[in-house]
Simulated assay, not measured.
Amino acid sequence: MQLASYINDLLFRYECVIIPGFGAFLTQYHSARIDKSTNTFTPPGKLVSFNRQLQTNDGLLANYIATLESCSYETSLQRIRNFTGNLSLQLSEGKTVTIKNIGDFVLNKEHTIQFTPSEVQNFYTASFGLTSFVSTSISREIHQKTVAALEEKAPLYISPEKRVARPYLKHAAIALIAVSAIGFGGLKLYEGSVQKHNFAEKQKANSLIENQIQEATFFIDNPLPSLNLTFTKKTGNYHIIAGAFRVKENAEKKISQLSLKGFEAAMIGVNKYGLHQVAYSSHENRLEALQTLRKIKTTNNKDAWLLVLDLNK
């Protein structure tokens, strides 16, 4: 099933991949885990789940297929219909359907689709190359007991040294302390005088700079007129795409056409194929974006589709 590899690709990039007429795969992040019973360390990843209720086409999978296979949007939709029809047929025959690296589907006694995710693939790109591993536990208590036992067997004894009275050392020590005190006092006086000198010089320099700034006068014969620029910043990760253009001028022309129709159209960047993408609008809420997409497909452009992309990255 070639479409399985396309779905795999999209799950690495998006949190929701809808298969029109069948359901949607959702990914949810989980942090690194430790199984204390088996001492197994598992890296961070994404858990894959399946939602049968999300079947409305958002254009993501169809446009991805059309781009990779250089075919029309309708052709890619037909391929998806064939794919979902084959899945439904196999499930109705009581077979277990496996989508490689994603999971298994089976139809239970209540004729409800049950999904079991595969643990082979980790769709969290930051954990690429990381695998689970088993590490033996560290018995710190045993090592502490071993060290304590060694200390009991080999105790340490410190015996006092016999000292010979040397009175002249006491006088030499007193003299050394006196010389050190005098030297320390002189050093402190020298440091104080240096600090005062540096402070006075800094005050002079600051006063000189302030006087020069106050005396400076600037004249501009032909001042430039002030400009008031208004920029529209697109917010949200859900963008309804109107088209992608190789030539930037064509993208700008499309934006002008959509603006005349009342859309807040904008260019949201260049994709990996070098195409300038033009969006009808951008939204922070996925449900709001899907509702707007449905309205645009009905009234304006049936080939419009939804792109999930964080523009701040």
Rank of each mutant, 00 (worst) to 15 (best):
Q2F: 09
I240E: 15
A165Y: 03
E69S: 03
S207N: 11
Q55N: 04
K302D: 14
C16T: 12
G192S: 13
A149C: 07
P20R: 00
L91N: 07
H276I: 00
L130C: 00
A181H: 04
A279Y: 03
Q212L: 12
E161G: 07
L258M: 04
T235H: 13
S259G: 06
I209G: 08
S180H: 13
E119R: 00
F41N: 02
A181W: 10
Q212N: 05
E201K: 12
A242F: 05
T230H: 11
V270F: 06
Y14P: 07
I220H: 10
K170P: 11
F50S: 00
P43H: 05
T230F: 02
F12I: 06
P223I: 15
T75M: 01
G59C: 03
Q53G: 07
K204M: 07
G183C: 12
I7C: 06
S137K: 09
M1I: 02
L309K: 10
W305Q: 11
I296Q: 05
S5V: 04
T217C: 10
Q53W: 08
D221H: 15
A148G: 13
A148C: 12
L306K: 07
Y280W: 01
T112W: 04
L311D: 00
S281E: 08
G59K: 03
Q55K: 02
S132F: 01
T75V: 10
G236L: 04
N206W: 00
I296L: 09
Q78T: 04
T75D: 06
L229V: 12
S31Q: 12
E191K: 09
V247R: 12
E151A: 12
N63F: 14
D104Q: 09
R166M: 09
I7Q: 03
E69P: 01
Q144M: 08
P225Y: 08
V194G: 00
F245H: 12
R79C: 11
T27L: 04
L150D: 15
K204A: 14
L229C: 08
I240S: 13
N122P: 09
L290Y: 01
E119Q: 03
L77Y: 09
L150N: 15
T146P: 06
Y73E: 14
R166S: 10
T96S: 02
K297H: 09
R13T: 11
I99V: 10
A205C: 09
